[in-house]
Nucleic acid binder design. Structure first.
Lengths: 177, 177
DNA sequence: CTCCCTAAGTTGCGATTCGCAACCCTTTTT
DNA sequence: AAAAAGGGTTGCGAATCGCAACTTAGGGAG
């Protein structure tokens, strides 16, 4: 990516996402929720997570609107934790992370494959796409200010070469030796 | 998703991904790397991270093959940390997380927008797609064993209703009250 | 050559957080 | 009435985080 974005500013959604999902067990709890677990004991047993941590994480996810906590009508000892719409919105991120983990794990042997349940065909690898559907790699991306959207980005010091990653340090800018 | 996958097993890439990227600053370091930072001091100053932690994280990312550490030829005090191919493979995951953070942050005001630098148009929201390109939501997904790929998935207790998330507890299964 | 500066860490130490086990309160089941 | 299940909370030792100070190696100016 050519233009460097300011990193400390809150113009980036990543810090917020990490505030919600960045703690140790959050993603695994989320995965469990996507797999249809609802109850405290289920999470506890399936994940082997300490109860106090689980309690803390669930409360955190509820507070951030990823899960919804509702006491169970039929059995008032139980509580249900369910994904909200915001929580469901994390599925692409989780899947991308997971696909990456699978791809780069030595000798990874998929026990189960995520498929389109209509035809049983595996889902596509998650990728970044342009408006016209082209898959984009890193060196085809750039940052643009909202008012200049639609204007091609001039990548300063665009000394990028093969396959979307820099072959050399991008020119003698002030940054690099 | 209908069929429940076994959660503790290593049949899932998520634990591996989190082992690499799950610590507190890893994703922000990665973002910085995608933004063209190479050197220890740059990361330190831009992110405001403690030096010992940064040192630890960089070493960890190098060890896991996300970054490559090379002493700088021209100035032998410096060291370059560069994304490997494995590291570049994290871009979709990071972007998905980031888009999620942006979408669900109150009053989020994008300072910069990630665009296709050829035409300056914003990239698409990251989504999960079937082989034919259809966008898939959670309730259209299922787990299938590798030998049965291509066979439609029968979702057990498929009481899912609106918009891809469960309207009620999916029937009186053994799981839910 | 000497002095000073930069880059990249390392070390010490107090403040948090994690993880385990035990305990607690409420609701259900027997 | 007693026992058990569900969902936590509390205490406490171990590991991790974050800050500041220190170290080591290389470069540059005079």
């Amino acid at each position: 990516m050519g233009i460097r974005e300011p990193l400390r500013e809150m113009s980036c959604g990543l810090p917020h996402a990490l505030e919600v999902m960045g703690e140790r067990w959050s993603f695994l709890i989320l995965r469990a929720a996507f797999n249809g677990l609802y109850h405290f004991e289920e999470f506890s047993q399936e994940l082997g997570i300490a109860r106090n941590i689980l309690s803390n994480r669930l409360a955190n996810l509820v507070q951030h609107g990823v899960l919804e906590r509702t006491p169970c009508e039929a059995d008032r000892r139980k509580v249900e934790y369910r994904l909200t719409e915001k929580g469901l919105g994390l599925l692409p991120a989780m899947l991308a992370l997971r696909q990456w983990g699978e791809r780069y794990t030595e000798d990874f042997n998929p026990g189960l494959v995520l498929v389109d349940c209509r035809d049983g065909q595996p889902v596509q690898p998650i990728s970044i796409r342009a408006q016209d559907g082209r898959e984009l790699s890193w060196h085809e991306l750039g940052w643009q200010t909202p008012d200049k959207i639609g204007q091609p980005v001039d990548r300063h010091a665009g000394a990028y070469a093969k396959d979307g990653f820099p072959a050399e340090p991008p020119e003698q800018s002030e940054e690099c030796c």
